[in-house]
Simulated assay, not measured.
Amino acid sequence: MYTTPFDYHRASSIDDALKMLADNPDAKLLAGGHSLIPTMKLRLAAPSALIDISALDELRGIRVDGDTLILGAGVTHAELVYDKTVAEYAPLLPDTARWVGDPMVRNRGTIGGVIAHADPAADYPASLLALGAQFKLKSAGGERVVGVDDYFMGMFQTALKEGEIVTEIHIPRQLGKGAYEKFRHPASHYAIVGVAVVASPEGVKIAMTGAGPKAMRLDKVEEAIGTDLSEENIQKATADVVDAGSLLGDRFASEEYRAHLAGVLTRRALMRVR
């Protein structure tokens, strides 16, 4: 299917993109385009203009500030897989990025695009929840930082306001092991269920994606595990991870099957970080 007619603009800077957004509120930002273009072809989205930000150096780059890893929103999935700084400061991210799409998607798609789109079956939201990430958002009026717990609000819903752009992702240094486990749809490679775990001396943080309108922390399992990562305790804590009635059921998987997958994948991830 063909898209509806639209104008195309290539931004020369973040400020240039923000000005274009202010002048045309119906416009959409284009980075990798792997979520936006298919929805436009199906006419589920019909922006009057696309603002291409894929070539902006301001949105690229990986650096460290103290104990915080800072990712530009334009960093690709492939960069996260192979970058040595990311592997040192947040090893959960490369483990997650390997699961994203296929080689073409990983080489073109960006972490900022995933965050802005907020697909409930995307991989990063679970891992960013477990890592305690923060997002820098910029508009013509200034900048603000929003924590991951407050950013993802629902299915394709975020704390982004009109005229704002995700510019950076800030991640505290990961103190301990991390693992991401996923049962994916065979065609789209999106998560039917995905589970991210970070284990540190203080305990574990566990988050799940694909099973509801947004990624969610598995607080009950975190409390049950505590700092005891023995196989016996993991088996006990993951026997009933989540109530099936609180999960999404669709043509890909029922609520009950997603609840079963949540237990299996949480168990696998926890066994990997022992």
Rank of each mutant, 00 (worst) to 15 (best):
1 M>K: 06
2 Y>A: 11
4 T>N: 04
7 D>H: 12
8 Y>W: 06
9 H>Y: 15
14 I>K: 10
19 K>A: 15
22 A>I: 05
25 P>W: 01
30 L>D: 10
34 H>C: 00
36 L>W: 03
38 P>C: 03
40 M>I: 07
54 S>H: 14
56 L>W: 12
61 G>V: 07
65 D>H: 06
66 G>W: 07
66 G>V: 06
71 L>T: 10
73 A>I: 09
73 A>M: 07
75 V>R: 11
76 T>P: 06
77 H>D: 06
78 A>N: 13
83 D>F: 14
84 K>R: 13
85 T>Q: 09
86 V>D: 08
88 E>I: 11
90 A>M: 09
94 P>T: 14
95 D>W: 10
97 A>K: 08
102 D>A: 05
104 M>K: 11
106 R>I: 13
110 T>I: 11
111 I>M: 07
116 A>V: 03
120 P>M: 01
126 A>Y: 01
134 Q>F: 01
136 K>V: 15
141 G>S: 04
149 D>G: 05
150 D>F: 09
151 Y>F: 15
153 M>Q: 12
153 M>G: 00
157 Q>C: 13
158 T>I: 05
158 T>S: 03
160 L>C: 08
161 K>L: 11
164 E>R: 07
167 T>Q: 14
167 T>M: 13
167 T>F: 11
172 P>N: 14
180 Y>F: 14
181 E>S: 10
184 R>V: 02
189 H>R: 06
189 H>E: 03
199 A>K: 14
201 P>T: 06
210 G>K: 00
212 G>L: 01
216 M>N: 02
221 V>W: 04
221 V>D: 06
223 E>R: 05
223 E>Q: 04
226 G>F: 06
235 Q>V: 14
239 A>F: 02
242 V>L: 05
242 V>S: 02
243 D>E: 03
246 S>C: 00
248 L>S: 02
253 A>Q: 07
253 A>V: 08
259 A>M: 07
262 A>V: 07
272 R>W: 07
